[in-house]
Design a protein around this nucleic acid. Structure first.
Length: 623
DNA sequence: TCACGACGGAGCTCCCTCCA
DNA sequence: TGGAGGGAGCTCCGTCGTGA
């Protein structure tokens, strides 16, 4: 353990100039590898300033170490060129933050912007019919027409007979109006000035465009260009409107504290008027026009009766007004790229005040969503991912019947990062039901691998949404004898309680400050009041927890346990209380997959709990 | 230069077969 | 009987060629 802590504090920052075959591999400085003695990690995580991350394996050739698998992807994503250099700064947990500098010595544009924008664009919703397209890569000189998706055209642009042409007014949300023609041939296209539009808006290859069909006769469309989506991603307005299910609204202001954004000032009034309580769940749905519709779910997972709540609280006359018809509130029509923000709050300390002064917003609108930790108790089913299920995945018939899926055609999947993915429900004539269109994107974005298990959980009180928990299976490397053998370990518990890192990740929205008053629940598996070192004995199949810790922090059993390693891998185990407090049913897999050996040390941090499971972050310090 | 058609590949739907 | 595997064929879209 000492060596690990030593590493964390003494790993040197370094930079590498891109020379030689840098696109395939990158040698690591000897001074760096010496710091990791006796064992250089097999995997590093590279994290860009925007939070994008790459897993890169470390390969040893003779006495030298290289970044190998995964580095190529990083190099391609960053479009690294000869002579550019990369600065690596160690962040702990085998992760480096990286900054890339071009040959002009200036920091290089952050990569994967398009990927991020695409994700945002994919989740844009609107009251108007809409479609998304990408400017093709390569030579744009031939890009004189825009093909409109056939299904969209069929559904929303009637009179699609061959040879038809109609005028189209295309309004760009960042300014400018363009007159084009809609032509129906083999393809449905925008012609008659599309190239002028491309040039006039300085469109580049792989730019993402979102189109809203505002009117059909004559055809009027809005276009949300890449820059606009990007701006919305980073430029959050100073004021939002929150509306409740009772059609009342509150104007709340956005405040920046450090690098986080908060709803402030009028937020306490909203909280008070809606009788927010510890344990409530808030879902923010962006309606456009700077307005969020807020759904409030109580700790019983049902939508809260706000009218009832209002009776018990003093309403604010100043900020609470009846909503006017016609949506005429003088709010500038600034945002057209709506997005759904889901704010899942976490049960923390009972004394946390929900009427705290602020509530956190997604960081720079990057929609930072905490892992969906709603306390749902709805129906669920499991499915194991296989390559053959890349395009469809079956839903058990009893689930289909119970949830009435046969009459639905769309659902939302909520991934572990809190992102939502629209998927199509397809029912075959033979009575089988699958998730189809949208599922491939979900798989790709969540990097599902063969044998990864998806736990689909229907959320009570939220229609058309399924939360998906992913339990990853690692392909075990060739089995080393000592790794596969039963091991006995002792787990030394550090004397101090270290606060767990906030688990914010790209695409996550942490709202714990509102409900939990900024406190971190994460504890090392030790009793805070007891400075004595504790040990935890384990067998291959069972891990016995220190009873003092378990009695204080893990009182409820039986309950599922999610073990999460520093790389984000998860394992499922079962927590039981008998003669001891112990983990089994899955602990063995964890031991096996992580090649735990005798005298290896595991630090357990209780980072979360809810009605169904505890979540333990496990840091492994190898002997 | 622009409008439109052709082509090929990727993705999706549907169905058959196997197996528990 | 229902779930899973896998393949055939269709659809859609990106790309490029051609002619006005």
């Amino acid at each position: 353990m000492d060596s690990m802590l030593h590493h964390t504090s003494n790993i040197p920052n370094f930079f590498k100039v891109m020379v030689g075959d840098f696109q395939k591999k990158l040698s690591l400085p000897k001074a760096l590898t010496l710091c990791f003695k006796p064992k250089v990690p097999k995997m590093f995580t590279l994290i860009s300033p925007t939070g994008s991350s790459w897993m890169v394996s470390v390969k040893r050739v003779d006495k030298d170490f290289f970044l190998a698998n995964g580095w190529k992807t990083f190099a391609e994503d960053y479009a690294l060129e000869l002579g550019e250099f990369v600065v690596f700064r160690y962040k702990g947990d085998n992760a480096f933050s990286v900054k890339v500098f071009g040959k002009n010595a200036c920091e290089k544009e952050v990569p994967s912007t398009n990927k991020n924008i695409e994700e945002v664009a994919n989740h844009v919703t609107s009251k108007y019919p809409m479609f998304t397209t990408t400017v093709p890569k390569g030579d744009l000189t031939w890009y004189t027409t825009l093909i409109i998706p056939k299904l969209f055209a069929k559904k929303y642009l009637k009179n699609n007979h061959l040879g038809l042409t109609r005028d189209v007014t295309l309004r760009v949300t960042t300014g400018g109006t363009w007159n084009l023609r809609y032509s129906v041939g083999v393809h449905r296209r925008l012609i008659g000035g599309w190239k002028t539009f491309v040039v006039g808006n300085n469109l580049k290859a792989r730019d993402i465009l979102v189109f809203e069909l505002v009117d059909r006769n004559p055809i009027q469309m809005n276009c949300l260009p890449t820059d606009y989506i990007k701006n919305f991603n980073g430029d959050v307005p100073k004021q939002f409107i929150l509306t409740s299910s009772t059609r009342r609204f509150w104007e709340v202001f956005v405040k920046k504290i450090d690098n986080n954004l908060f709803l402030s000032e009028q937020w306490p009034i909203f909280a008070k008027d809606n009788a927010l309580e510890f344990g409530d769940l808030l879902v923010f749905i962006y309606n456009g026009n700077l307005e969020f519709r807020v759904k409030i779910f109580g700790s019983n997972a049902c939508e809260k009766d706000v009218e009832l709540a209002l009776k018990n609280n003093v309403e604010s006359d100043f900020y609470l007004r009846e909503e006017k018809e016609g949506n005429d509130r003088g709010i500038p029509d600034k945002l057209h790229s709506p997005d759904i923000l889901k704010c899942y709050k976490r049960r923390r300390t009972a004394e946390a005040a929900v009427t705290d002064k602020v509530t956190s917003l997604p960081n720079s609108m990057s929609i930072k969503t905490e892992r969906s930790e709603v306390m749902e108790v709805g129906l669920s089913f499991n499915a194991t991912f296989q390559p053959s299920r890349k395009y469809k995945i079956g839903i058990p018939n009893e689930i289909v019947k119970e949830k009435g899926l046969s009459v639905k055609d769309k659902m939302l999947l909520l991934d572990p990062c809190g992102r939502s993915w629209p998927v199509t429900i397809y029912c075959w004539s033979k009575g089988r039901t699958f998730l189809t269109a949208g599922w491939p994107a979900f798989c790709k974005a969540n990097r599902l691998n063969t044998n990864d298990t998806c736990h689909f959980q229907f959320i009570d009180g939220v229609d058309n949404a399924i939360r998906v928990e992913i339990f990853r299976t690692r392909t075990p490397p060739p089995i080393a004898k000592q790794a596969s053998a039963g091991v006995k370990m002792s787990t030394a518990i550090p004397r101090e309680v270290i606060e767990a890192p906030t688990r914010k990740r790209p695409g996550e929205f942490v709202d714990d400050r509102v409900i939990h008053n900024g406190k971190q629940e994460s504890l090392l598996m030790t009793d805070c009041s007891n400075n004595d070192e504790q040990t935890m004995s384990t067998a291959p199949n069972v891990a016995v927890l220190p009873s003092a810790f378990a009695k204080k922090h893990m009182k409820h059993a039986p309950r599922g346990v999610i073990l999460r390693d520093s790389n984000g891998g998860t394992w499922h185990a079962q927590y039981k209380i008998g003669s001891h407090h112990k983990l089994n049913m899955g602990w063995k897999t964890f031991v096996f997959d992580n090649h735990l050996k005798e005298c290896d040390v595991c630090i357990f941090e209780l980072v979360d709990e809810n009605l169904t499971h505890y979540e333990l972050k496990v840091t492994i310090i190898r002997h």
